[in-house]
Design a protein around this nucleic acid. Structure first.
Length: 574
DNA sequence: GCCGTTTTCGGCCCGACTGTTTTCAGTCG
């Protein structure tokens, strides 16, 4: 699957195109195509095999981009991209990453001062050389100096789980401010995107100036990038960007829609508004000067002839068409989850006791919890069977204590070896009530070998769940490649489950592959892979990822009450 | 570069903030 690498290249092509001053609509088309590729479930190479017409049939891909895609798949490069790289030093692209520097400014800097990367930018700013350039004053020099320093620290997107709870804390802080009638975290966090670039807040208030003035004093603020009458942008220590937008309370719904995005979804909605003789902005839906909807998101959608679309679907990746047909899925929710299906305790590499895990599971509102300690951790500590049975007795005692409020399931996580066999004694796996199997070494195999390896593991009679299917770790490891349709189809045939893993640094599989999973019909198990009690809250992330994959409760194993889950666990093993 | 039951040419979402060029371009989300 080469969709993501091609998307990256098209985004870069868009930046280059902006820099050389081609039509902004051209770069928008490139970015649009890149975004299509990022969300597309089908590998672009299989679409290309069906010919250029198949590519051009995708809305947003025309003749020129189809040719670029084919050229890339055949030769590994896009000629136009190569050609622009001849004209533009590569470092210019990172100069354009500095907030406030766009293509025009980058070009001025290069042409006047030869600024070609962050280093030379910093020198030109520090020496004051930039002051010779038209449109440059001292205020701008100081501002860019600070921002260049800031982005050298952090400008990359961060995993959702590393920011999600910080955003909730900051939201709480915002809600306490005077004159704040309502507040919300929007943007990619509300859409539960796997990685986020900034935190976006919306506030409803009658006194925006007072709220803005307080906002820019948020603890941890190192830079106020913009501060106006109803919007502000700040950077926190560590370079995290935080945006605030205020709307009058009456425009709360339109404001929510605006702050949540995605940009592509918003643009599509605004086009629909125009088609219907309306205008959509962050204050409402307008017919001339008359406002026809604004108070709730549902009203705004309704005014555009659409049902409410849940935030995780708002990517303009088919949700609007489905909404028009009235066939949006009823997404699984956190409240429907009855238990966690992958967790670890001190019996393996977890930090907390099984009792602490169980207590936390109770406070999460669960009725069951699968303890799935690693087999090999037992092995390192001594006799596997002995330790397993010791843990089993502990779990039995715990379950007695819990008196039916919560049931801890005696599970195991087992390694899938290079050839797809399981790295554990058969008898041990049979004794475990629930077995999740995952890859922990031997990543990066060829797709065909990886496909066969995963299928073989699924076929093992003791296995219930395929854990963290792609093995990706943010910042460490790219997702493994496999023929996911085949793997998930086999899981479906066997009646087994595939995990959607919410652990902060995993979030596995990535959204496009969750969508393939959704289409396969296979069971889905949501798990946090918790290694301490507090990790159990990551179920919110697992649910978010499932929602982005369009999954409904019917497909998610752990929406089932315990008796049904137990029946399933038995049934799978025949 | 894409797209089309108004169009194969002429459109392409909408608003806010900054700094500096006294009226607006560049940038951002």
């Amino acid at each position: 699957m080469r969709n993501l690498e091609l998307a990256r290249l098209l985004n870069e092509l868009a930046d280059l195109s902006d820099y050389v001053g081609e039509s902004q609509f051209k770069s928008r088309a490139y970015r649009n195509a890149a975004r299509l590729l990022e969300t597309m479930q089908t590998p672009i190479e299989s679409l290309a095999e069906q010919g250029q017409e198949a590519l051009e049939a995708v809305p947003g891909i025309g003749k020129a981009i189809a040719e670029k895609i084919i050229a890339y798949l055949n030769t590994g490069v896009i000629p136009k991209h190569q050609q622009l790289l001849q004209l533009v030093p590569e470092g210019i692209l990172e100069v354009m990453q500095v907030p406030g520097i766009g293509p025009k400014t980058a070009r001025l800097l290069y042409e006047h001062l030869g600024v070609h990367d962050l280093e030379s930018l910093q020198n030109a700013l520090a020496s004051g050389a930039v002051l010779q350039i038209p449109h440059f004053g001292e205020a701008k020099r100081q501002r860019l100096l600070r921002l260049t320093e800031l982005i050298k620290k952090a400008r990359q997107r961060r995993p959702l789980g590393t920011v999600y709870w910080l955003a909730q804390e900051k939201l709480h802080w915002l809600q306490q401010l005077p004159h704040v009638q309502n507040a919300l975290v929007g943007g990619s966090i509300r859409r539960m995107q796997e990685t986020i670039g900034d935190i976006d807040f919306l506030v409803a208030t009658e006194h925006p100036e007072k709220v803005i003035a307080a906002f820019v004093q948020m603890p941890g603020t190192t830079e106020v990038f913009a501060q106006g009458d109803n919007r502000a942008q700040i950077f926190l220590e560590g370079g995290l960007q935080v945006d605030l937008k205020t709307v009058p309370p009456v425009s709360w719904g339109a404001g929510m829609l605006y702050i949540t995005g995605s940009k592509a979804h918003s643009i599509r909605l605004r086009e629909i508004a125009i088609e219907r003789g309306l205008k959509l902005n962050e204050y409402g839906v307008w017919r001339g000067t008359e406002c026809v909807a604004r108070e709730t998101e549902a009203e705004v959608y309704e005014a555009l002839g659409l049902p409410y679309i849940p935030p995780p679907l708002r990517e303009n990746s088919g949700e609007i068409e489905r909404a028009l047909q009235g066939s949006l899925p009823a997404l699984v929710t956190r409240e429907q989850i009855q238990g966690d299906l992958q967790t670890h305790s001190r019996w393996s590499d977890g930090q907390d006791t099984s009792e602490a895990m169980a207590q936390e599971a109770l406070s999460q509102g669960y009725t069951y919890l699968a303890l799935t300690d690693h087999v090999e951790m037992f092995a390192w500590q001594g006799d596997v069977f002995h330790l397993f049975r010791q843990r089993q007795r502990e779990i039995e005692r715990l379950n007695e204590q819990m008196a039916g409020r919560l049931v801890v399931l005696n599970g195991l996580e087992v390694n899938i070896d290079i050839d797809g066999t399981l790295d554990a004694p058969e008898e041990l796996l049979k004794e475990a009530e629930i077995v999740v199997a995952g890859i922990h070494y031997g990543h990066g195999q060829e797709p065909e070998a990886m496909t066969r390896r995963l299928i073989r593991a699924l076929e093992h009679p003791s296995v219930h769940i395929l854990a963290h299917p792609t093995g990706r770790r943010f910042g460490k490891r790219e997702p493994n490649d496999a023929d996911w349709e085949r793997v998930f189809r086999r899981a479906y045939e066997l009646g087994k489950a595939v995990e959607v893993n919410g652990y902060t640094t995993r979030m596995d599989p990535p959204t496009p592959i969750v969508r393939i999973l959704e289409q396969s019909g296979a069971w889905v198990a949501l798990g946090t892979d918790a290694h301490r009690a507090s990790d159990l809250r990551m179920m919110t992330l697992a649910v978010g990822l499932a929602q982005r994959g369009w999954l409904t409760a019917e497909r998610v194993l752990n929406t089932r009450p315990l008796p049904e889950l137990r029946a399933w666990l038995k049934e799978v093993r025949g």
